[in-house]
Amino acid sequence: MLLLAPTALALGALTVYPGAWVLWLSLQHRIPIFGVARFAGLDNFTFLSVDARFWSAAHTTAVFTVASVALEVVLGVGAALAIHTQRRGRAVALSFLLLAWAMPAVVAAKLFEWLYHPVAGLINVALGRHALNWLGDPAIALAAVTLADVWRTMPFVAILCYARLLAIPPDLYEAAQVDGAGRLATLTRITLPLLGRILLLAVLFRTLDALRAFDIMFVLTGGGPANTTETLTVYAYRALFQTLQLGFGSALSVVVFALVMVVAWAYLRLLRAGSVAA
């Protein structure tokens, strides 16, 4: 019991206390700099339930999360397999992957800002007459932001998978070969199932990150055009730090927190079920 005390204290001070405080703030109309501080009950949440901007942000967050994580998994596994089969230059390939991953999100966003530049950007120059309005067209802005995020975070999935691939004993493949399994069968019957658990873990991390995505859209589009790239955390940031509505902003944060908790819980159940089955 005594041994648990430091952990309990640290968790209490760093997580439980601020968490409870945010929950308490979310039940108030509170704008300290203008001296507004009164209990609001569930007012903030009632407003959110009919707030079109909130639902748009929730929708954007969901689309962004599903699309970016799915792409990261497909590309990440692909990259890991490619490097694994590569005979030479693995170290070089890995360092290129790590370079993207090590880049701070804001730097990556600035890089893509130039790539997406409507007049002088590399992409539009290459497209010539078919140039697109990447960050100003509500139909494609979210896709553009998602691609930028996938570029930066796909290596995370790739490297985790690559590490798992290295740990698969070569005898398994030899046995499969002896049994006459083709390449496709080896991939679907051996490699992918063995990647399953590590992939689930990677997806868990990536999903939790994507649900809280902020910097890439904040720098690239500021949430525009027409709020089509505004995620829940960008909305919460605007409420908390720009317009200083601490109560309303906290209500938004509480929703994001609940969302992340539910998703994390679902994944962990899945992981546990997987480990029991295996």
């Binding site: 901007r53 100003g136 067209d137 509500p138 949430g223 525009g224 055009p225 027409a226 709020n227 505004e230 605007r238 720009q242 317009t243 200083l244 509505q245």
Partner: peptide, 16 residues
Amino acid sequence: LLVSATVQPEFSAALV
């Protein structure tokens, strides 16, 4: 800032 942050998405929606 509250006014500006509130009208920005609406103006943008009309423009696009």
